[in-house]
Design a protein around this nucleic acid. Structure first.
Lengths: 149, 149
DNA sequence: TATGAAACGAGTCCATT
DNA sequence: AATGGACTCGTTTCATA
Protein backbone atom coordinates (compact mmCIF):
# COMPACT_ATOMS: atom_id res chain seq x y z
CA UNK A 1 0.00 0.00 0.00
CA UNK A 2 1.70 3.17 -1.18
CA UNK A 3 0.31 6.71 -1.08
CA UNK A 4 -1.61 6.23 -4.30
CA UNK A 5 -3.33 3.11 -2.99
CA UNK A 6 -4.34 5.04 0.11
CA UNK A 7 -5.80 7.81 -2.04
CA UNK A 8 -7.69 5.31 -4.15
CA UNK A 9 -9.23 3.41 -1.24
CA UNK A 10 -10.15 6.67 0.43
CA UNK A 11 -11.98 7.87 -2.68
CA UNK A 12 -13.79 4.55 -2.89
CA UNK A 13 -14.64 4.72 0.81
CA UNK A 14 -16.15 8.14 0.31
CA UNK A 15 -18.02 7.28 -2.90
CA UNK A 16 -17.95 3.72 -4.17
CA UNK A 17 -19.69 4.70 -7.41
CA UNK A 18 -16.94 7.05 -8.56
CA UNK A 19 -15.69 6.07 -12.02
CA UNK A 20 -12.21 4.69 -12.63
CA UNK A 21 -11.73 7.53 -15.07
CA UNK A 22 -12.39 10.08 -12.35
CA UNK A 23 -10.03 8.34 -9.93
CA UNK A 24 -7.33 8.22 -12.58
CA UNK A 25 -7.66 11.96 -13.21
CA UNK A 26 -7.33 12.69 -9.47
CA UNK A 27 -4.16 10.62 -9.09
CA UNK A 28 -2.71 11.58 -12.50
CA UNK A 29 -2.52 8.07 -13.87
CA UNK A 30 -3.84 6.13 -16.80
CA UNK A 31 -7.23 4.49 -16.19
CA UNK A 32 -5.73 1.08 -16.91
CA UNK A 33 -3.16 1.52 -14.14
CA UNK A 34 -5.86 2.48 -11.66
CA UNK A 35 -7.92 -0.52 -12.70
CA UNK A 36 -4.94 -2.80 -12.00
CA UNK A 37 -4.45 -1.30 -8.56
CA UNK A 38 -8.11 -1.62 -7.61
CA UNK A 39 -8.15 -5.25 -8.72
CA UNK A 40 -5.14 -6.00 -6.57
CA UNK A 41 -6.61 -4.20 -3.56
CA UNK A 42 -9.74 -6.31 -3.99
CA UNK A 43 -7.70 -9.51 -4.34
CA UNK A 44 -5.66 -8.72 -1.24
CA UNK A 45 -9.00 -8.04 0.49
CA UNK A 46 -7.92 -4.57 1.56
CA UNK A 47 -11.19 -3.62 -0.11
CA UNK A 48 -13.78 -6.03 1.26
CA UNK A 49 -16.92 -4.95 -0.57
CA UNK A 50 -18.84 -2.03 -2.00
CA UNK A 51 -22.20 -1.16 -0.50
CA UNK A 52 -24.96 1.42 -0.54
CA UNK A 53 -25.98 2.73 2.86
CA UNK A 54 -29.75 2.97 3.06
CA UNK A 55 -32.01 4.92 5.37
CA UNK A 56 -33.11 2.15 7.76
CA UNK A 57 -36.42 3.86 8.51
CA UNK A 58 -37.23 3.99 4.79
CA UNK A 59 -37.16 0.20 4.63
CA UNK A 60 -39.13 -0.34 7.82
CA UNK A 61 -36.26 -0.79 10.26
CA UNK A 62 -36.63 2.30 12.38
CA UNK A 63 -35.35 0.81 15.63
CA UNK A 64 -31.69 0.24 16.43
CA UNK A 65 -30.56 -1.67 19.51
CA UNK A 66 -27.47 -3.25 20.98
CA UNK A 67 -27.86 -6.53 22.83
CA UNK A 68 -25.25 -7.83 25.26
CA UNK A 69 -25.50 -11.62 25.32
CA UNK A 70 -24.23 -13.94 28.05
CA UNK A 71 -23.65 -17.51 26.97
CA UNK A 72 -22.27 -20.67 28.58
CA UNK A 73 -19.19 -20.81 26.41
CA UNK A 74 -17.87 -17.60 24.95
CA UNK A 75 -15.35 -19.47 22.87
CA UNK A 76 -17.94 -21.59 21.09
CA UNK A 77 -18.44 -19.90 17.75
CA UNK A 78 -21.68 -21.75 17.01
CA UNK A 79 -23.61 -19.33 19.20
CA UNK A 80 -22.08 -16.43 17.34
CA UNK A 81 -23.01 -17.95 14.00
CA UNK A 82 -26.58 -18.60 15.12
CA UNK A 83 -26.87 -14.99 16.25
CA UNK A 84 -25.44 -13.80 12.93
CA UNK A 85 -28.07 -15.76 11.02
CA UNK A 86 -31.03 -13.97 12.64
CA UNK A 87 -32.64 -11.44 10.25
CA UNK A 88 -32.04 -7.91 11.46
CA UNK A 89 -28.79 -8.83 13.20
CA UNK A 90 -26.18 -6.66 11.51
CA UNK A 91 -23.18 -7.19 13.74
CA UNK A 92 -22.05 -9.87 16.16
CA UNK A 93 -18.90 -9.21 18.14
CA UNK A 94 -17.19 -11.54 20.53
CA UNK A 95 -16.20 -9.31 23.45
CA UNK A 96 -13.98 -9.40 26.48
CA UNK A 97 -15.67 -8.94 29.83
CA UNK A 98 -18.82 -10.15 31.54
CA UNK A 99 -20.75 -10.74 28.35
CA UNK A 100 -19.77 -13.01 25.48
CA UNK A 101 -21.32 -11.15 22.56
CA UNK A 102 -22.33 -7.67 21.64
CA UNK A 103 -24.99 -7.70 18.93
CA UNK A 104 -26.21 -4.81 16.80
CA UNK A 105 -29.75 -5.31 15.61
CA UNK A 106 -32.32 -3.36 13.61
CA UNK A 107 -36.06 -4.01 13.78
CA UNK A 108 -39.27 -2.22 12.86
CA UNK A 109 -40.15 -1.24 16.43
CA UNK A 110 -39.91 -2.34 20.06
CA UNK A 111 -42.62 -4.94 19.57
CA UNK A 112 -40.64 -6.64 16.81
CA UNK A 113 -37.49 -6.37 18.89
CA UNK A 114 -39.22 -8.07 21.82
CA UNK A 115 -40.42 -10.86 19.57
CA UNK A 116 -36.92 -11.28 18.12
CA UNK A 117 -35.38 -11.58 21.57
CA UNK A 118 -37.99 -14.02 22.82
CA UNK A 119 -38.35 -16.15 19.72
CA UNK A 120 -34.86 -16.06 18.24
CA UNK A 121 -32.25 -15.12 20.82
CA UNK A 122 -33.69 -17.13 23.71
CA UNK A 123 -34.01 -20.21 21.52
CA UNK A 124 -30.26 -20.48 21.15
CA UNK A 125 -29.37 -23.12 23.77
CA UNK A 126 -26.14 -21.66 25.12
CA UNK A 127 -27.61 -18.21 25.75
CA UNK A 128 -28.01 -17.43 29.46
CA UNK A 129 -29.27 -13.88 29.37
CA UNK A 130 -29.55 -10.75 27.23
CA UNK A 131 -29.37 -7.10 28.12
CA UNK A 132 -30.77 -4.71 25.54
CA UNK A 133 -29.83 -1.07 25.02
CA UNK A 134 -32.19 0.92 22.84
CA UNK A 135 -30.75 3.66 20.61
CA UNK A 136 -32.71 6.89 20.84
CA UNK A 137 -30.75 8.75 18.17
CA UNK A 138 -27.59 8.17 16.17
CA UNK A 139 -25.33 11.22 16.21
CA UNK A 140 -22.82 9.58 13.84
CA UNK A 141 -22.81 6.34 11.92
CA UNK A 142 -20.19 5.60 9.32
CA UNK A 143 -17.70 2.94 8.38
CA UNK A 144 -15.27 5.24 6.66
CA UNK A 145 -11.96 4.64 8.34
CA UNK A 146 -9.66 7.59 8.99
CA UNK A 147 -6.68 7.22 6.66
CA UNK A 148 -3.27 8.93 6.88
CA UNK A 149 -2.70 11.77 4.41
CA UNK B 1 -40.93 2.45 -3.08
CA UNK B 2 -42.35 -0.29 -5.27
CA UNK B 3 -40.91 -3.77 -5.82
CA UNK B 4 -38.51 -2.55 -8.48
CA UNK B 5 -37.10 0.13 -6.18
CA UNK B 6 -36.55 -2.52 -3.52
CA UNK B 7 -34.71 -4.72 -6.02
CA UNK B 8 -32.56 -1.80 -7.12
CA UNK B 9 -31.55 -0.71 -3.62
CA UNK B 10 -30.84 -4.30 -2.68
CA UNK B 11 -28.52 -4.74 -5.65
CA UNK B 12 -26.75 -1.51 -4.73
CA UNK B 13 -26.53 -2.61 -1.10
CA UNK B 14 -24.87 -5.84 -2.18
CA UNK B 15 -22.54 -4.24 -4.72
CA UNK B 16 -22.47 -0.49 -5.08
CA UNK B 17 -20.20 -0.67 -8.12
CA UNK B 18 -22.68 -2.63 -10.24
CA UNK B 19 -23.38 -0.82 -13.53
CA UNK B 20 -26.73 0.76 -14.33
CA UNK B 21 -26.78 -1.39 -17.43
CA UNK B 22 -26.53 -4.55 -15.35
CA UNK B 23 -29.26 -3.38 -12.99
CA UNK B 24 -31.50 -2.54 -15.92
CA UNK B 25 -31.03 -6.02 -17.37
CA UNK B 26 -31.94 -7.63 -14.06
CA UNK B 27 -35.15 -5.64 -13.68
CA UNK B 28 -36.02 -5.73 -17.41
CA UNK B 29 -36.04 -1.99 -17.91
CA UNK B 30 -34.32 0.58 -20.03
CA UNK B 31 -31.09 1.97 -18.49
CA UNK B 32 -32.53 5.48 -18.59
CA UNK B 33 -35.50 4.41 -16.47
CA UNK B 34 -33.22 2.83 -13.89
CA UNK B 35 -31.08 5.96 -13.82
CA UNK B 36 -34.19 8.03 -13.08
CA UNK B 37 -35.19 5.74 -10.22
CA UNK B 38 -31.75 5.75 -8.66
CA UNK B 39 -31.60 9.55 -8.84
CA UNK B 40 -34.93 9.80 -7.06
CA UNK B 41 -33.91 7.29 -4.40
CA UNK B 42 -30.81 9.39 -3.79
CA UNK B 43 -32.85 12.61 -3.69
CA UNK B 44 -35.34 11.12 -1.23
CA UNK B 45 -32.31 9.98 0.79
CA UNK B 46 -33.46 6.37 0.79
CA UNK B 47 -29.94 5.79 -0.50
CA UNK B 48 -27.64 7.74 1.82
CA UNK B 49 -24.24 7.04 0.31
CA UNK B 50 -22.04 4.53 -1.45
CA UNK B 51 -18.97 3.25 0.32
CA UNK B 52 -16.19 0.73 0.10
CA UNK B 53 -15.70 -1.39 3.20
CA UNK B 54 -12.01 -1.75 3.96
CA UNK B 55 -10.15 -4.25 6.07
CA UNK B 56 -9.48 -2.17 9.20
CA UNK B 57 -6.32 -4.09 10.05
CA UNK B 58 -4.92 -3.32 6.58
CA UNK B 59 -5.02 0.40 7.36
CA UNK B 60 -3.61 0.09 10.86
CA UNK B 61 -6.85 0.00 12.83
CA UNK B 62 -6.79 -3.51 14.19
CA UNK B 63 -8.61 -2.83 17.43
CA UNK B 64 -12.37 -2.39 17.73
CA UNK B 65 -14.02 -1.27 20.95
CA UNK B 66 -17.35 -0.02 22.23
CA UNK B 67 -17.35 2.70 24.85
CA UNK B 68 -20.34 3.44 27.08
CA UNK B 69 -20.19 7.08 28.09
CA UNK B 70 -21.94 8.69 31.05
CA UNK B 71 -22.40 12.43 30.79
CA UNK B 72 -24.08 15.13 32.85
CA UNK B 73 -26.76 15.86 30.32
CA UNK B 74 -27.77 13.13 27.91
CA UNK B 75 -29.94 15.50 25.96
CA UNK B 76 -27.14 17.94 25.23
CA UNK B 77 -26.06 17.08 21.70
CA UNK B 78 -22.79 19.00 21.98
CA UNK B 79 -21.19 16.10 23.80
CA UNK B 80 -22.34 13.74 21.05
CA UNK B 81 -20.91 16.01 18.39
CA UNK B 82 -17.60 16.31 20.21
CA UNK B 83 -17.39 12.52 20.45
CA UNK B 84 -18.23 12.20 16.76
CA UNK B 85 -15.37 14.52 15.83
CA UNK B 86 -12.69 12.33 17.45
CA UNK B 87 -10.65 10.42 14.82
CA UNK B 88 -11.37 6.72 15.02
CA UNK B 89 -14.88 7.24 16.38
CA UNK B 90 -17.13 5.60 13.79
CA UNK B 91 -20.46 5.65 15.56
CA UNK B 92 -22.04 7.68 18.34
CA UNK B 93 -25.45 6.62 19.54
CA UNK B 94 -27.57 8.34 22.13
CA UNK B 95 -28.98 5.49 24.19
CA UNK B 96 -31.68 4.89 26.77
CA UNK B 97 -30.57 3.60 30.14
CA UNK B 98 -27.77 4.31 32.59
CA UNK B 99 -25.35 5.61 30.00
CA UNK B 100 -25.88 8.50 27.64
CA UNK B 101 -23.83 7.39 24.66
CA UNK B 102 -22.60 4.21 23.11
CA UNK B 103 -19.54 4.85 20.93
CA UNK B 104 -17.94 2.52 18.40
CA UNK B 105 -14.26 3.23 17.96
CA UNK B 106 -11.34 1.77 16.01
CA UNK B 107 -7.71 2.30 16.94
CA UNK B 108 -4.36 0.69 16.16
CA UNK B 109 -4.05 -1.14 19.49
CA UNK B 110 -4.90 -0.93 23.18
CA UNK B 111 -2.22 1.65 23.80
CA UNK B 112 -3.73 4.00 21.23
CA UNK B 113 -7.18 3.30 22.65
CA UNK B 114 -5.99 4.20 26.13
CA UNK B 115 -4.52 7.43 24.88
CA UNK B 116 -7.71 8.26 23.01
CA UNK B 117 -9.82 7.75 26.13
CA UNK B 118 -7.51 9.77 28.35
CA UNK B 119 -6.68 12.57 25.96
CA UNK B 120 -9.87 12.92 23.95
CA UNK B 121 -12.86 11.44 25.75
CA UNK B 122 -11.96 12.65 29.24
CA UNK B 123 -11.36 16.15 27.95
CA UNK B 124 -14.99 16.58 27.04
CA UNK B 125 -16.34 18.54 30.04
CA UNK B 126 -19.72 16.86 30.44
CA UNK B 127 -18.31 13.33 30.44
CA UNK B 128 -18.52 11.70 33.89
CA UNK B 129 -17.19 8.22 33.12
CA UNK B 130 -16.49 5.71 30.38
CA UNK B 131 -16.73 1.96 30.32
CA UNK B 132 -14.89 0.22 27.49
CA UNK B 133 -15.63 -3.15 25.96
CA UNK B 134 -12.91 -4.62 23.77
CA UNK B 135 -13.91 -6.70 20.75
CA UNK B 136 -11.93 -9.93 20.51
CA UNK B 137 -13.40 -11.05 17.18
CA UNK B 138 -16.20 -9.93 14.88
CA UNK B 139 -18.38 -12.85 13.81
CA UNK B 140 -20.48 -10.66 11.53
CA UNK B 141 -20.25 -7.04 10.48
CA UNK B 142 -22.43 -5.64 7.74
CA UNK B 143 -24.78 -2.80 7.09
CA UNK B 144 -26.85 -4.53 4.48
CA UNK B 145 -30.40 -4.29 5.67
CA UNK B 146 -32.72 -7.27 5.21
CA UNK B 147 -35.27 -6.26 2.58
CA UNK B 148 -38.63 -7.89 1.83
CA UNK B 149 -38.77 -10.07 -1.31
C1' DT C 1 4.04 -1.61 -12.73
C1' DA C 2 2.65 2.11 -16.00
C1' DT C 3 1.26 3.72 -20.63
C1' DG C 4 -1.63 4.47 -24.78
C1' DA C 5 -4.44 2.79 -28.55
C1' DA C 6 -8.41 0.45 -29.83
C1' DA C 7 -12.68 -1.92 -29.33
C1' DC C 8 -16.41 -2.38 -26.81
C1' DG C 9 -19.84 -1.25 -23.45
C1' DA C 10 -22.05 2.03 -20.35
C1' DG C 11 -23.88 6.69 -19.01
C1' DT C 12 -26.74 10.32 -20.02
C1' DC C 13 -29.93 13.38 -22.44
C1' DC C 14 -34.09 14.10 -24.69
C1' DA C 15 -38.05 13.61 -27.76
C1' DT C 16 -41.84 10.68 -27.55
C1' DT C 17 -45.55 7.97 -25.58
C1' DA D 1 -42.92 7.21 -15.32
C1' DA D 2 -40.85 4.37 -19.26
C1' DT D 3 -38.78 3.88 -23.92
C1' DG D 4 -35.30 4.07 -27.66
C1' DG D 5 -31.96 6.59 -30.28
C1' DA D 6 -27.89 9.33 -30.33
C1' DC D 7 -24.02 11.00 -28.52
C1' DT D 8 -20.53 11.09 -25.10
C1' DC D 9 -17.68 9.00 -21.93
C1' DG D 10 -15.87 5.09 -19.35
C1' DT D 11 -14.04 0.27 -19.16
C1' DT D 12 -11.08 -3.15 -20.37
C1' DT D 13 -7.51 -5.56 -22.93
C1' DC D 14 -3.16 -5.87 -24.79
C1' DA D 15 1.26 -4.68 -26.87
C1' DT D 16 4.95 -2.10 -25.35
C1' DA D 17 8.19 0.44 -22.42
Amino acid sequence: MDDIDVKIVDMLQQNARISNAEISRRVNMAPSAVLERIKKLEERRVIREYGARLDPAAVGLGLLAFVAVKADYCEDDDTGRMLAAIPGVLEVHNVAGDDCYLVKVRTRDTEHLGRLLREQFRNIPAIRSTKTTIVLASVKETNSLPLPE
